[in-house]
Design a protein around this nucleic acid. Structure first.
Length: 822
RNA sequence: GCCCGGAUGGCGGAAUUGGCAGACGCGGAGGCCUCAAAAGCCUUUACUCGAGAGGGUGUGUGGGUUCGAGUCCCACUCCGGGCACCA
C-alpha cells in the first residue's frame, strides 16, 4: 500500500513510549475508580495468530476506553506456560520444555507488543515461574489440609496418545481426547481429586446474577446437571434384610417397575450374581472396564447390540409398590458413579429402559396415560396415572409427591438431589507441569512437603519418553527422599497437576505479585475484584470457567483469601472464533494467518480497525480471500483521516453557517452513538458511525462553500478521541503533531456529547398512505401528534395520492412516521 | 434425541422498544486527474417492469396477529454450536 506516512516508524515510536514511560502501569494505591480488565492468559504456542489478535484488540480497546473514562485500569499479562504441547515438542526436538516454552513466550510477547496492546508488565506471571509454582503448591496443600484434595482409586479416563489421565471435562462427547483426538480408555488408577462436587449447588445457584452470555451459563448449568428425585430401597427377594438402593426422578412411575439394573461396577453385583449367571455377568463387567468410552456409550443401533450389553444376575428384588418380585440385571447403560449406581427400570416411561426391555423380553407396563395420537415407545410427559394403585388419576406432579411419601414410609425413601458433576481429577502423568507436593512414607502415609521446602521443582535431567508412567518416577534423585515427619526413606509423588489449576488463580496473582511471602495480599486483591471485564474464547465456557469459580469459593472457605467475593468475573465476553474459509483454525492445519505481514502493510492500527469493524465481536469470523481487501480498506480509512487532519483539499470560510451547525450536530450525535455502541460491545457499528462522521465532514470541508475552521477542528478532534482506543498509534501521533504542548490523546477524558446539539437535529418523518411510503418530511424531533398529522396532510405529494379522499384513520407516531388510511 | 444460536444485495454485515430494509465497508460499473500506472477524488450499485416520470417485488419456507412485521406468534427447512445412556 502507498501510505501518506511511515506507519512502522510511528507505531514503533509509540509502542516504545508506552512501554518506557509505563503509561499503562497502575499502582494498587491509585485513588481513581478501579477497573480490572482481563483477557484470558494464553498458552504460549508461538507467534500470535488472528485469534489472539482479535482477543487482544477487544481487550486493549476496553483498557484504553476505560482509562479515558477516568478509571485506574488494571491490565495484566501472563502465560499459561505449562502443558503437553511443549513437552511433546521438546521430546521431538530433544530439547527441554522450558527452553521451548520460553522461546514461544518471547515470540508471542513481541507479537502482542507490536499490536500496540498495553499492559502493566511489572505484573507479568507465568505458570512455570518457581515463585508462582510455590503458591500453586501451597494452594494444593491448603486444599489437602481442608479435605478438598483427596486421593482415590477410581476408573479414570486414560488417553493413550497423551500418556496421561484426563478430567471428565477433557473427554469429548465421542469419547476422544480433546487435545490429541485419541480414543480415551478406562483404567483403574489411584489419583488426586479436588472436591468440586461440594460446590455443585453454589456453582449452579450463583450463576444467575453474573453478566455472562446466556449460552455459557446454560452450558455450565447442563454440565453441573442438577436433578431432584428420591433414593430408596428395593429389598432382595430372598433376604429382606438386604436391599438394593436406587435413585429415581420419577417415583410416580413405581408401579411400572418391571426390573432393576445395577452398573457393572456396582459393589453388590458379585453378591447378587448366582452361579448359573456368573459367566455372562462377568463378560459384561469385563467389557465395560476394558473397552473404550466410545464403545460403551454408543447407541444400540451402532456398535454392540443391547443384548450383549446387559445380563440377568439371577437375583430378584421386591417392587415396594406392587410387592411383586422383579429381576435384577447388570447393564452398562447404568453408570457406577452416578446416583447409587443402580436404578429401578420403568420401560413404559423411559426410552432406554424400553429398548432394553424389548431386547430382553421384559414386561412393559404403562403407568402414565399418553395423550391421544401419541406415537413412540416410552412416554415421559405429563398425564393421568393408570395401572398405579393409589396413584391412579393423579397427574405427574401430584403423583410424585404421593409416591415420595409412600417410599419414605415403606422403603427408607429420602428426597435427594443429584448432580452430574464429578470431582475434578487433577493428577497428570507428565513432566511439564507443577509437581504435586507430597511425600509417601511407609509409616506416616501421605505427608505434605513442608512449606519452607516449597516449591518442589522437577530436576532438569529427566527423560521424557512416552512410557505411560510419570517421567518424574524414572528419576531416582527426585523420587527418593526422606519423610519430613520421621526422616526415614520415602518416595515423592511423581504426578504433576492439571494445568487448569494454574489458570484457576493466576488472575489473583495479577492483583498483587509484589508482596513478599504471599501469593497475593487479599486486601489488595479485594480492591480489584471481581474482574470487571473478562474476555476470552467460547471454548473455555465449561472447563476453565467452572474450575476458576470453584477455586475462589474454596479459597474463601478455607481462609486462604479472606474478604474476597465468591465469584471471580462479574462480566464475561466471549469472542467468536476465526475460521479460514469455513474450517476451524488450528495449528495442525497451518492456517493461523500470522499478523506480521499486516503490520507491515496496514499497520497494527489498520489490523485493529479491521477486527473491530468486521462483524459483531461475539460472532464467528470467516477469513476468506476477500478479507484482505477489507483489511486494506481499513488502512485506507486511516489514510483518509490522516489527510483530512492535514487539511488536504479543504476549503475554509470565516463565519459559521447552517451547514457548519449541522456538522456540529453530526459530531455530537456521533459521540453519543459511539459511546453507546462501545458500552454494548457493538464495535462494528461504532466504527461505522465514525466513518459516517468522517464522510459528512469530508464532504462539507471539500465542497466549494467549505467549512468554518473551528467546526472542522471540533469534528477532527472528536474523531481522534473516538478512534484513540481503536487505532492508538496514529491518533497519538496526529494529536502530538497538532497539540505538542497538550496531554496525549490517550490521557484525555472521553468526549461527552452536547445533548442540546444531539436533540435539536432535525429528523426525517415518513408519511405513508395505506402503509406505503409516499413522502418524507424534515421535522423537529419534538413535533406533536397533531402537528405531525397536519404536516402530513398538507404535503403536496400526499395530497396528490389522496386526490381529495377523506382518510378513515390517521396513525401518527411522531417524529418517525404518519400513516394515512383511506 | 434434547438445549442454545443463526439464515437480510455479488460479499462482510446494519436496522437498541413493531415504524424509511440494506447504515458502514468490500467488490463491480462509469468518470476526473496522469504521457501512463499506482494512489487519490467524484458518480453509481437489492431485484424487476419502464425511454422517462413512475410502478411492482423483496429479509430461508408456509400461515397468523397488526394501520404497519427482518423484528411478535404458530408450523417447517437448512446451517452452526453445546450436551447426550446422568435414571
Amino acid at each position: 500500500m502507498n501510505r501518506p506516512f511511515d506507519v512502522t516508524a510511528v507505531e514503533e515510536k509509540w509502542q516504545a513510549r508506552w512501554l518506557d514511560e509505563g503509561t499503562y502501569e497502575v499502582d494498587n494505591d491509585d485513588p481513581r475508580e478501579r477497573y480490572y480488565a482481563l483477557t484470558m492468559y494464553p498458552y504460549p504456542s508461538g507467534t500470535a495468530h488472528q485469534g489472539h489478535v482479535r482477543n487482544y484488540v477487544f481487550g486493549d480497546l476496553v483498557v484504553r476506553y476505560q482509562t479515558m473514562l477516568g478509571k485506574a485500569v488494571l491490565s495484566p499479562y501472563g502465560f499459561d506456560s505449562f502443558g503437553l504441547p511443549a513437552e511433546n515438542a521438546a521430546i521431538k526436538a530433544g530439547s527441554h520444555p522450558r527452553l521451548y516454552t520460553e522461546a514461544r513466550m518471547h515470540e508471542l510477547k513481541t507479537s502482542v507488543r507490536r499490536l500496540g496492546a498495553v499492559y502493566d508488565w511489572r505484573r507479568e506471571v507465568y505458570s512455570h515461574d518457581p515463585e508462582f509454582m510455590k503458591w500453586s503448591q501451597m494452594i494444593f496443600l491448603a486444599f489437602l489440609k481442608n479435605g478438598l484434595a483427596y486421593r482415590a482409586e477410581a476408573q479414570v479416563n486414560w488417553c493413550p496418545g497423551c500418556m496421561t489421565v484426563l478430567a471428565n471435562e477433557q473427554v469429548l462427547a465421542d469419547g476422544t481426547c480433546e487435545r490429541s483426538g485419541d480414543l480415551v480408555v478406562r483404567r483403574f488408577l489411584e489419583q488426586w481429586y479436588f472436591k468440586i462436587t461440594d460446590y455443585a449447588e453454589e456453582l449452579l445457584d450463583s450463576l444467575g446474577p453474573l453478566e455472562w452470555p446466556e449460552r455459557v451459563k446454560t452450558m455450565q448449568r447442563n454440565w453441573i446437571g442438577r436433578s431432584e428425585g428420591v433414593e430408596f430401597d428395593l429389598p432382595l427377594a430372598y433376604d429382606a434384610t438386604k436391599a438394593l438402593r436406587v435413585f429415581t426422578t420419577r417415583p410416580d412411575t413405581g408401579f411400572g417397575v418391571t426390573y432393576a439394573v445395577v452398573a457393572p461396577e456396582h459393589p453388590l453385583l458379585s453378591m447378587l450374581t448366582t452361579d448359573d449367571e456368573r459367566a455372562r455377568v462377568e463378560e459384561i463387567v469385563l467389557r465395560a472396564s476394558n473397552t473404550t468410552e466410545i464403545d460403551r456409550t454408543s447407541s444400540s443401533s451402532e456398535g454392540i447390540g443391547l443384548e450383549k450389553r446387559g445380563a440377568f444376575t439371577g437375583s430378584f428384588v421386591i417392587n415396594p409398590f406392587t410387592k411383586e418380585k422383579v429381576p435384577v440385571y447388570v447393564a452398562d447403560y447404568v453408570l457406577g458413579n452416578y446416583g447409587t449406581g443402580a436404578i429401578m427400570a420403568v420401560p413404559g416411561e423411559d426410552e432406554r429402559d424400553f429398548e432394553f426391555a424389548t431386547v430382553h423380553a421384559l414386561p412393559i407396563v404403562r403407568t402414565v396415560q399418553p395423550p391421544t395420537g401419541f406415537v413412540g415407545n416410552a412416554y415421559s410427559g405429563d398425564g393421568e396415572h393408570v395401572n398405579s394403585g393409589f396413584l391412579n388419576g393423579l397427574d405427574v406432579a401430584n403423583a410424585k409427591t404421593k409416591a415420595t411419601e409412600f417410599l419414605g414410609a415403606n422403603a427408607n425413601g429420602v428426597s435427594k438431589v443429584n448432580y452430574r458433576l464429578r470431582d475434578w481429577l487433577v493428577s497428570r502423568q507428565r513432566f511439564w507441569g507443577c509437581p504435586i507436593p507430597v511425600v509417601y512414607c511407609d509409616d506416616d502415609g501421605i505427608v505434605p512437603v513442608p512449606e519452607d521446602q516449597l516449591p518442589v521443582l522437577a530436576p532438569d535431567d529427566v527423560i521424557m519418553d512416552k512410557t505411560g508412567q510419570s517421567p518424574l518416577a524414572t528419576h531416582s534423585g527426585f523420587l527418593n527422599t526422606t519423610c519430613p515427619i520421621c526422616g526415614k526413606p520415602a518416595r515423592r509423588e511423581t504426578d504433576t497437576m492439571d494445568t487448569f489449576t494454574d489458570s484457576s488463580w493466576y488472575y489473583l496473582r495479577f492483583t498483587d505479585p509484589f508482596t513478599p511471602g504471599m501469593a497475593f495480599d487479599p486486601v489488595e486483591a479485594a480492591k480489584w475484584l471481581p474482574v470487571d471485564q473478562y474476555i476470552g474464547g467460547i471454548e473455555h465456557a465449561i472447563l476453565h470457567l467452572l474450575y476458576v469459580r470453584f477455586y475462589l469459593k474454596a479459597l474463601d472457605d478455607i481462609g486462604f483469601s479472606p474478604g474476597l467475593p465468591r465469584e471471580p468475573f462479574q462480566r464475561l465476553f466471549t469472542q467468536g472464533m476465526i475460521r479460514l474459509s469455513g474450517s476451524k483454525m488450528s495449528k495442525s492445519k497451518g492456517n493461523l494467518i500470522a499478523p506480521e505481514e499486516y503490520y507491515e502493510t496496514v499497520g497494527a492500527d489498520g489490523l485493529r480497525l479491521f477486527h473491530l469493524f468486521a462483524g459483531a465481536p461475539g460472532d464467528d469470523l470467516d477469513w476468506t480471500d476477500q478479507t484482505n481487501e477489507v483489511v486494506e480498506g481499513c488502512g485506507r480509512f486511516i489514510d483518509r483521516f490522516y489527510r483530512l487532519w492535514h487539511f488536504y483539499d479543504v476549503n475554509f470560510h470565516d463565519v459559521a453557517d447552517e451547514t457548519d451547525h449541522s456538522v456540529r450536530q453530526a459530531t455530537h450525535r456521533t459521540i453519543a452513538r459511539v459511546t453507546n455502541d462501545l458500552n454494548r460491545w457493538s464495535y462494528n457499528t461504532a466504527v461505522a458511525a465514525i466513518m459516517e462522521l468522517y464522510n459528512t465532514v469530508s464532504k462539507v470541508a471539500r465542497s466549494d462553500e467549505g467549512i468554518e475552521r473551528s467546526t472542522l477542528n471540533e469534528a477532527l478532534d472528536t474523531l481522534a478521541m473516538l478512534l484513540a482506543p481503536m487505532t492508538p498509534h496514529v491518533t497519538a501521533e496526529l494529536w502530538e503533531e497538532r497539540y505538542p504542548d497538550r496531554a496525549s490523546v490517550h490521557a484525555l477524558p472521553w468526549p461527552v456529547a452536547d445533548q442540546t446539539l444531539v436533540a435539536e437535529a432535525a429528523v426525517i418523518m415518513v408519511v405513508e398512505v395505506n402503509g406505503k411510503v409516499k413522502s418524507r418530511l424534515s421535522v423537529a424531533p419534538t413535533i406533536n401528534e397533531a402537528d405531525a398529522t397536519a404536516a402530513a396532510l398538507a404535503d403536496p405529494d400526499v395530497a396528490a395520492v389522496l386526490k381529495g379522499a377523506t382518510p378513515t384513520r390517521v396513525i401518527a407516531r411522531p417524529p418517525r412516521m404518519v400513516n394515512i388510511i383511506i
